[in-house]
Design a protein around this nucleic acid. Sequence first.
DNA 1: ACGCTGACTATTA
DNA 2: CTAATAGCCAGCG
Length: 124
Amino acid sequence: MKQKSTIKTIRPSGKREESFFELVYEVARQIPKGRVTSYGAIAACLGTKLSARMVGWAMNGAHQVRPKVPAHRVVNRLGILSGKHHFGPPGKMQELLEKEGIKVKDDQVVDLKKIFWDPAKELI
DNA sequence: ACGCTGACTATTA
DNA sequence: CTAATAGCCAGCG
């Protein structure tokens, strides 16, 4: 897999392109500080719960999207920091989470059930 | 237009 | 937990 970025069409300069990604970004920005959510939860909120992969794919472009998207608050259903390697320097994602009060142990969020934020219920 | 890829999830073994 | 399989869908060559 030597694929490079490939994400560019998501942000046409000067034109607000409403795509699947934009919806993911909006939901991700709504995540309260000190809380986390899963790709499946976001996907479910968008109506495409069967396509959690697309959420992760969207997060891939979140780095270049403004305003910044708290992708570090998005983990997989087990609370594992599956996207830490895409965050740039490995360990940065965990550092950000711990900075917000989220405990991370062995690349996995502690007390996931307590800090889990469901967009389908909290965000209407 | 077709095939490949991917930061997921669920199920089965 | 791991490994394999299947489903899902947008973007790119």
